[in-house]
């Protein structure tokens, strides 16, 4: 899959203004509070660890190898967003209840908010930035666009990574099965019908894509 990556594996392209960069430079940066679903309402954003013991962690992220020295408390989600600026992976509930933080770990979908980066040492991660490129979308990305599998888009990176996992695990055989095996991803806009259609349509192409990469 490395051939599909830009040089640093971060999915960034020269000269583009990112939403994150824009926020950082504006008054909005201090109020980017994220909604919290269910548990842990007192937490507004990921804790950024500043003290405590450190661990050395090596990961392959979107095809590129990286080594880090991290506070042991760092979750994969913290690492991707705060250290790698891979902000396509979203913070939703931060407690494994909403699926917004879904990534692929050695090809298997997981909640990155509940996994310590240290526990993933030596493994390979795929985020939405590494799945496809703007000029060569992964078939699941294209299918989400085709079927309006989103409105606001916040849950979409997690939905798409989860959908790829759903297919490769062999649980996209019917629409009821897709609904059951996509239940770990909540969409507050209620785009479930389009999501289900997208997964069903992109199933075969996703398998072909996985075999080709």
């Amino acid at each position: 899959m490395a051939s599909r990556q830009d040089k640093d594996g971060r999915g960034r392209f020269p000269g583009r203004v990112t939403r994150r960069g824009l926020l950082k430079g504006s008054a909005a940066s201090g109020v980017a509070a994220l909604g919290s679903y269910g548990a842990g309402a007192q937490e507004v954003q990921s804790e950024t660890a500043r003290s405590g013991e450190t661990v050395d962690v090596s990961l392959n992220i979107n095809g590129a190898d990286h080594s880090f020295t991290l506070d042991a408390r760092t979750t994969l989600l913290d690492l991707l967003r705060e250290r790698m600026d891979l902000t396509g992976t979203k913070v939703g509930c931060n407690h494994g209840q909403c699926g917004a933080c879904t990534i692929l770990l050695d090809g298997t979908r997981i909640n990155s908010c509940l996994m310590l980066a240290a526990a993933a040492d030596g493994k390979a991660i795929t985020t939405i930035e590494g799945l496809g490129r703007p000029d060569e979308l992964h078939p699941m990305q294209a299918a989400f666009i085709q079927h309006d599998g989103f409105q606001c888009g916040y849950c979409t990176p997690g939905q798409i990574l989860s959908a790829v996992g759903c297919v490769t695990e062999g649980h996209a055989g019917s629409r009821p099965e897709i609904r059951e095996y996509m239940s770990g991803n909540l969409c507050r806009c209620g785009a479930y019908k389009g999501i289900t259609e997208a997964v069903a349509e992109a199933r075969d192409a996703t398998i072909e894509w996985a075999e080709a990469t």
Partner: peptide, 9 residues
């Protein structure tokens, strides 16, 4: 039980 993501871990 749980979700596919949680069951994978």
């Amino acid at each position: 039980a749980a979700s596919p993501q949680l069951r994978n871990v």
